[in-house]
Amino acid sequence: MKEEKIELIKDGKRLSGRGFEELRSIKIEVGVLKRADGSCYFELGDNKVIAAVYGPREMHPRHFQNAKMAVVKYRYNMAPFSVDDRKRPGPDRRSQEISMVSRKALDPVILRELYPKTAIEVYVEVLQSDAGTRTAGINAASVALADAGIPMRDLVSSVAIGKIDGEVVLDLDAKEDNFGEADMPIAMIARTNTITLLQMDGRFKKEEFERGLKIAMSGCRKIYELQKDALVKKYSKSGNEE
């Protein structure tokens, strides 16, 4: 692996031409699926994910019901065509883990106790992947949950930071992820600065970690604003049409 090392930073810019603390371009569309109770299409650079929310509805199988609160189901799934080499379809160890951590990232904002015995189902499909799909999925899911009219304390925003060529940078793309040194996705509630997901792959020094967290949090705040804008726009737009 050492011999094919590529230079990820040239003249103070990243391969994609971005600065160190720059996000990829983001596009959010709300309510794209007609049959879902809430949905969202989210693009983060070359990542394309779609989230659908159903419910609250009756929980099946029944013995998984919680008599006091709703159960959140989260399914993260990568389409076979979402990556360069065809991915074997269906759940695997990786997607099960991501589903679990993403669910836990969203759980704290949902007022589950208002809907006892029900299930709130979140389906996240990755159509195209370019590193950071779990963060894109969480962003999409939180917008879709709001669109479904589910009571929430706040939206959840998520972004990753990483280390490439010894520099801490925001929002890695696939090349940077593969040849970089470390990668750390976080999810947080922007208003209260509460972190609901933090994973780390690779190594950061303590001061790198602290600086990275700061960068990631400011990235989340930017995404939070975009999520809000997208939701508000859905209704202000259709109001002006006629």
Partner: peptide, 19 residues
């Protein structure tokens, strides 16, 4: 919730979707 604010009387948020 995601909705519109109704400021007459108590402050309410009228949801735009939901069960």
């Amino acid at each position: 919730k995601y909705g519109v604010v109704d400021d007459r009387g108590t402050i309410k948020v009228v949801a735009l979707s939901g069960k």
